[in-house]
Design a binder for these strands. Structure first.
Lengths: 193, 193
DNA sequence: GGCATCATGTAACATGTTACATGATTTT
DNA sequence: AAAATCATGTAACATGTTACATGATGCC
């Protein structure tokens, strides 16, 4: 067997198909309601990848066109399930971020105190919006199911809560500087830890 | 003025140059010791971007070749500093993640209990390694300086600590299932929140 | 009739990584 | 003398987004 290497996005597809047969459109909808905040995927990735996976024999497409509306339902093959399992057990769990908010805060030395406070408030609001989105998703899920998707949602909610709290603490320190008489040496950002 | 839009990676460069003049090589070293965990950058981005920024008049390169070793030191222009400031105050603070560990956990329904526990342990260990790296960086920084880079480091340390703790809690729940007699309905992953 | 949703897909663009090429200087 | 670090850069590749094109079906 030739074991061609698959992208992580390919495993997202295999993973969703491991639950039930689906179309590319449905995979995208599911991604947007679950993995999106830690692993996004667009049609431009999903459709070509589904075809590659079909050619490699990891998924199997069946024509389920209804009337004149095209519909291809994909299902995981045994080979596909084995590939998924082997990836799940493989020792790799990278975590990359592109955090524009923290990037701005990192360069906040270019700002005066009030501007820095405004920046922290802006970042906090952005995360509050992200958190609200996850909570909406959580509210729309059936409360009974026993699935790791609840765990993932909990992970994301906790993560955003942490960031929101961190922003508030940083802002509080900056605001305390004003009251204390503004000696800029006194700010020990990591002291609490 | 023509206000060409810049990538976030361009702002990383402007940001570092706002502290002191630097070469591309030095920018890369600084990135690796600070923003890397939330905003990475490679030579393949930095060198071409520096040239574009110079052409746009946001930075200025000076030849500081020493003997036969080439060296171009870049400095921020007034226009560059204004562009940086305006970006810092602009209302955008996206946060994207590519979290392979959580992705695997999300699909852990394909695993049996012991395998899921092994996966959680693996992810935890990966984050412990990331955390150790940040702590090493923290230990090598002068403890006096008043800079937001300490805040960013604190953000990252707290974030990884949260994830590590989350992994432990999830694992504990799975392990409790065994002791309790393995009724898989009883696992309410979000109940504690 | 009109709007939302279902459903397929592509092409251009943007972004980012890896490996390679080249060589000087400094430290051990 | 060897190894580490300083310093420049490119080319091929991988990955991912956005906008566009096309049209059917179902619901109000």
């Amino acid at each position: 067997m030739s074991e061609i290497p698959l992208s992580n996005t390919a495993y997202v597809i295999l993973g969703f198909l491991s639950k039930q047969p689906m179309t590319g459109y449905e995979i995208k909808s599911h991604v947007d309601k679950s993995t999106r905040f830690f692993w996004a995927a667009s049609y431009g990735q999903i459709y070509p990848e589904l075809r590659r996976l079909a050619e490699a024999g990891l998924v199997e497409g069946t024509d389920k066109s209804h009337g004149k509306r095209a519909r291809i339902e994909y299902d995981l093959t045994d080979t596909g399930r084995r590939a998924l399992h082997s990836w799940l057990m493989a020792p790799s769990a990278g975590c990359e971020m592109r955090d524009e908010g923290l990037l701005k805060i990192f360069f906040a030395h270019e700002l005066d105190r009030d501007e820095a406070i405004a920046l922290l408030t802006m970042v906090e609001r952005a995360r509050l919006a992200d958190l609200a989105e996850l909570q909406t998703i959580g509210a729309s899920m059936p409360p009974d199911a026993d699935d790791f998707k609840y765990a993932a949602l909990d992970y994301g909610i906790g993560l955003y809560e942490y960031v929101i709290d961190w922003c508030r603490r940083q802002r509080a320190e900056l605001e305390a500087d004003e009251t204390a008489g503004k000696q800029s040496q006194g700010r020990s950002l990591t002291a609490a830890r």
